[in-house]
């Protein structure tokens, strides 16, 4: 296996995995707080269009990422208010978020079709990035890739090592107990939902700013749903979600390279791979139902109202 084939392959895995990392880790926090937000796809696509629109009009990628996060957060706020304050069904509200997000992004994106800009630049650290093989693979990415790794580390640390993490987990495991000792279940959940929205927004922003600096309707293509599956796959653990995302990144590039290597399979069948892999992974991970029940936050998907 020659090295000049390997490096681009590894780089593609990283770019394919990064949006999933952001979205999945954000959703880990949301679900740890006991909220099932199925609107990841909608939040990602809104983040993607907000970031793209900002990048095209200001030319500033940093602002674009911020806009993506803000837009994701804003649309997550709708979900938060509905589920936390108005007690709406979380499954239905998450689906509504996805339908709304896809529609709204297409409406906003209508006037941005065909536009483009330079795209997020890769970091170039003199010396380090020039080392053969290790240089491009470890030090040749854009800033968001590193941010995704850092965010996983921070989330993992906060969830397991801090008081705030304990509070989030308590709310997700037993909201009545958390409430009875005086914590605000609603505020913790709202905070988690907004964080998840921002992360999904950044994940979407990565797609439209770094992955392909173009706007295409439905460009998230189910990645929000794959991120949701990753959370289950990861048993609600941030680092496992990270590795899961890279595993999927790997599957994504099989479809790109299989054709290059002359494998005679239709493009459509190769494109099915990530979706079929998701199903297989879900089967493997959910097979042991007792185990799965232990891993999932006990109050996942259940609404809380103080009057009981």
């Amino acid at each position: 296996m020659s090295v000049d084939w390997l490096i681009p392959a590894l780089l593609t895995i990283v770019t394919a995995a990064t949006p999933l990392v952001f979205a999945a880790v954000g959703e880990v926090v949301v679900e740890k707080a006991g909220v099932l937000n199925l609107g990841v796809e909608g939040m990602m696509i809104i983040g993607a269009i907000a970031a793209f629109a900002t990048a095209v009009s200001t030319g500033n990628e940093f602002l674009a990422i911020i806009a993506g996060a803000g837009a994701g957060m804003l649309i997550a706020l709708i979900f938060g208010v509905l589920t936390v304050y108005l007690q709406s069904n979380q499954v239905a509200t998450g689906l509504a978020l996805t339908i709304f997000g896809l529609g709204l992004s297409a409406l906003i994106g209508h006037s941005y079709v065909g536009k483009t800009f330079d795209g997020l630049a890769k970091l170039n650290i003199p010396g380090l990035s020039d080392i053969p093989v290790i240089g491009p693979v470890l030090f040749g990415h854009d800033a968001l890739v590193y941010l995704s790794v850092v965010s996983v580390a921070i989330v993992a640390w906060v969830l397991t090592r801090t008081r705030m993490g304990l509070l989030i987990r308590a709310v997700g495991e037993n909201h009545d107990a958390a409430h009875s000792i005086g914590y605000s279940v609603t505020l913790v959940r709202l905070g988690a939902i907004l964080f998840g929205g921002a992360m999904a927004g950044v994940g979407g922003a990565y797609l439209s700013v770094a992955y392909t600096p173009l706007w295409v309707e439905n460009m998230t293509a189910g990645r929000g749903w794959i991120a949701l599956a990753l959370v289950v796959f990861a048993s609600w653990k941030p680092w496992r979600a990270f590795f899961g995302a890279y595993l999927f990144g790997g599957i994504t590039i099989i479809q790109l390279y299989a054709q290059g290597m002359g494998v005679e399979v239709s493009a459509q069948f190769l494109s099915m791979l990530p979706y079929i892999a998701t199903i297989l992974v879900l089967v493997i991970i959910s097979r042991d139902s007792a185990r799965a029940r232990l891993d999932a936050p006990a109050c996942l998907g259940k609404n809380f109202h103080a009057s009981g």
Binding site: I78, L82, L86, Q87, S88, N89, A92, T93, L95, A96, L97, I99, F100, G101, L102, G103, L104, A106, L107, G109, H110, E217, H305
Partner: peptide, 25 residues
């Protein structure tokens, strides 16, 4: 753009879920 349809549909479901709170509360 006919994406207006999707926005419309999403909004309708949001408002529906929000006003459904009045059934139980």
């Amino acid at each position: 753009p006919n994406a207006v349809t999707g926005v419309f549909q999403g909004m309708l479901l949001f408002f529906l879920l929000a006003s459904d709170v009045l059934i139980k509360y």
